[in-house]
């Protein structure tokens, strides 16, 4: 018996976690998968009818779904691009010498770790058109009052992106800052001797040497950003008039407000496949980066 345990250490060590994952994840996913081929509306008296790929067909022709996919892409890409640029800039900034580094670092952490639902509520209050501080500021600066999250155009989406940027830029900054600290001093010294400009040092030395940590930061953000949920749920719940409806919110509505469980299951299956594909891409890139590093 003991020999068996010794020989199969790998299995013994991994098994508890694996069983947990299978029970808690694979089983629900299988449940969703099987329902995605039915027309079930959560009824207790009408058994689900098998309708083949009907739900998938419907979704792919559903303008609201396609729009939500598009919005998810726009939201994710703008947020990631801005967070990366700002994050790198801030990392370079706090890499300079200044007083209070520890305190500043700790305080910058707060948006990342603070409870998202609570933060969503705070932003909702600040951006509330009639009672929020934002419009007081806007008026004091001499502009017309704005509606912020209350617009059907791109503005409401833009504000959600800004909230996301506020929340996550510090994390990108800290990750890149960590990378910057591993860069040795020698290349900078030789650049100084060669008379390189600041910009040249930044693009030729800092960026390439910090590139792996930047890349990882981007990829980590990518897997989180496409399933952003708490903030949108707390502020707009996808409104006004679908202007901020992402895939996650649309799937949620189908399940909880429209009682279209089959359709919602199909949406979550599609969403899962996309995320899965991105995850594999992520690991592929990560393994490449680590080899170079």
């Amino acid at each position: 018996m003991r020999r068996w345990f010794d020989r199969h250490m790998k299995l013994v060590m991994v098994l508890p976690a694996l069983i947990f994952i299978v029970l808690m994840i694979i089983a629900p996913l299988a449940y969703n998968f099987s329902y995605s081929f039915t027309d079930w509306q959560m009824s207790l008296v009408k058994a689900p009818k098998f309708i083949g790929l009907q739900n998938y067909k419907e979704i792919l022709h559903d303008e609201r779904f396609l729009n939500s996919v598009w919005r998810t892409i726009v939201f994710s890409s703008i947020a990631i691009v801005v967070e990366t640029i700002l994050g790198v800039a801030l990392a370079v900034l706090i890499n300079r010498k200044f007083h209070g580094r520890r305190v500043v670092q700790a305080l910058m952490l707060l948006p990342v770790v603070a409870t998202p639902v609570a933060m969503g509520m705070v932003w909702k209050l600040m951006l509330e058109p009639s009672i929020g501080i934002a419009n007081v500021v806007v008026e004091a600066l001499g502009f017309q009052r704005r509606a912020f999250l209350a617009t059907t155009g791109f503005e409401s989406m833009l504000w959600l992106i800004i909230i996301d940027i506020w929340e996550w830029t510090p994390m990108v900054m800290l990750m890149v800052y960590g990378g910057l600290q591993t860069i040795p001093l020698e290349p900078y010294e030789s650049a100084l001797i060669d008379g390189a400009t600041k910009w040249q040092t930044f693009t030729k030395i800092t960026l390439p040497l910090a590139s792996s940590s930047i890349l990882i930061a981007v990829l980590m953000r990518l897997i989180d950003v496409i399933k952003t949920y708490d903030i949108i749920y707390a502020t707009t719940q996808g409104g006004p008039s679908f202007a901020t409806e992402t895939i996650n919110i649309y799937g949620y509505l189908n399940m909880f407000a429209y009682y279209r469980f089959g359709k919602a299951a199909a949406i979550s299956v599609l969403f899962f496949i996309v995320v899965m594909a991105m995850g594999c891409g992520f690991l592929w890139v990560k393994s490449k980066v680590e080899v170079e590093y």
């Binding site: 058109p129 009052r145 209350a150 059907t152």
Partner: peptide, 8 residues
């Protein structure tokens, strides 16, 4: 109405 009524 109020300028910001779309979210009201």
């Amino acid at each position: 109405g109020p300028a910001d009524c779309l979210n009201m």
